[in-house]
Amino acid sequence: MTLKFNDLEVGSRIPDVVKGPLTRSQIALFAVPSGDHNPIHLDDEVARQGGLPGVIAHGMLNMAYLSQALIGLAPQRNIREFSARFQAMAFPGDVITCTGEVTAKKRVGEENIVELTLAALNQKGEKILDGSAQVALP
């Protein structure tokens, strides 16, 4: 589905994407194609040696989930910019809700661009990712 520029106003929310509860196998499955083989994502013992309570999800797995809120709004070829700050870790059992809200609408060159603020929250409402994006809409 691609929304039109005029369908959205500042303050419009895009549909949430909910992922999880995260399992250890989902985290492990991401290690291979992502190229991030850091054992803190695979082995509780190593994670504890690093001062963590156990394995954590890859920050880029969380960011991949957050990107899916964007492609619910428009095909990925319409996404001009996407960024996130990693605020907290996600653990096995966490449910991650990805949200987005339009913060600005503008014309850049020949394109209509909506700016969004994005967030990935865990089931306690804690922010795992704080993000933003620019999306071109017809």
Binding site: N38, G50, G59, R80, E81, F82, S83, A84, R85
Partner: peptide, 17 residues
């Protein structure tokens, strides 16, 4: 040392698929 480093933030600017 690698265990001291964490990924703090990431931005992508897209030009073509």
């Amino acid at each position: 040392p690698l265990p001291k480093a964490v990924h703090g933030g990431q931005r992508f600017v897209y030009h073509a698929p």
